[in-house]
């Protein structure tokens, strides 16, 4: 390999099938200036140790597969230049707050299963009626939800969120931001259907507003902001229900 610089990666290893304890394994890598952490892991897997398990698809920061703890911080490994970690070593671990499947692979199935709870799709009667053209939506109306629609489901915010470590039942920043993204979409009429899943202690009110999710988010989705907006809307709704007698709504 025509690299100029060397760095050591300490990779978290765990294999559920051999019954052993997790450990860190060190690999020395020669790297090129433009290499990211993911390139180094791929090179190790190709050339030295094919048993390493990790996920990746796009290598351009948009598929959301490659999240890992890099030197203790949740990062997209395809978006973390190795040279920024020189002279090393670089410690690479699976995202925290998730069960580990093998090596750098976490179990995301919980998130995938719970995503449906926030009903992340447009709810209204005529969604399949395309005959009258597009629903109009001005740039300003898009702006109301747009940043929250940029989530790549990379799970870094779950690794950053302190509530996730204490309260595994918490729906979590990405799922709540997504529910809120649809609530804020002018085309949607499904807010009422999302209320149950999104409010409550497992939902919006579980958030203690540390805001770390928005700090670690690589796509500026600002889940903390979405949750905050959700809380305000939910509180308003609560007062409205409280003041008006039941059934008088709308």
């Amino acid at each position: 390999m025509a690299g100029e610089k060397r760095i050591t990666l300490e990779i978290f290893r765990y294999n559920p099938e051999d019954g052993g304890e997790p450990f860190f394994q060190s690999y020395e890598v020669e790297y090129l200036n433009h290499w990211v952490v993911l390139d180094a892991i791929n090179w190790i897997k190709d050339e030295i140790d094919g048993t390493i398990a990790h996920r990746w698809t796009c290598r351009m920061g948009v598929c959301g597969s490659c999240g890992m703890m890099v030197n203790g911080e949740p990062k997209l490994s395809c978006h973390s230049l190795l040279r920024d970690y020189a002279p090393g070593p670089v410690r690479v671990e699976p995202l925290q707050h998730f069960p580990v499947e093998k090596d750098l692979m976490i179990d995301k199935s919980g998130f995938m299963e719970r995503l449906a709870e926030v009903k992340p799709y447009i709810i209204r009667d005529d969604v399949n009626d395309t005959g009258n053209g597009e629903y109009l939506q001005t740039p300003a109306q898009i702006a109301a939800y747009h940043e929250h629609s940029m989530c790549i489901n990379c799970m870094l915010c779950y690794a950053g969120c302190p509530v996730m470590s204490l309260e595994p039942a918490f729906l979590g920043p990405a799922a709540l931001a997504l529910g809120q993204r649809y609530n804020l979409d002018s085309r949607d009429k499904g807010q009422a259907e999302r209320v149950d899943a999104m409010s409550g202690d497992e939902g919006l009110w579980g958030c203690t507003f540390v805001g770390e999710c928005s700090v670690v988010c690589p796509k500026h989705v600002d889940p903390a902001g979405a949750i905050q907006k959700g809380k305000i809307a939910a509180a308003k709704q609560w007062y409205a229900n409280f003041i008006k007698p039941k059934g008088a709504k709308k």
């Binding site: 447009i122 109009l136 939506q137 001005t138 898009i142 747009h146």
Partner: peptide, 14 residues
């Protein structure tokens, strides 16, 4: 679009 895709828009919302 009806399912939620945030296509970029003209000022009039089309």
């Amino acid at each position: 679009e009806h399912w939620g895709c945030p296509w970029s828009r003209e000022r009039d919302g089309s």
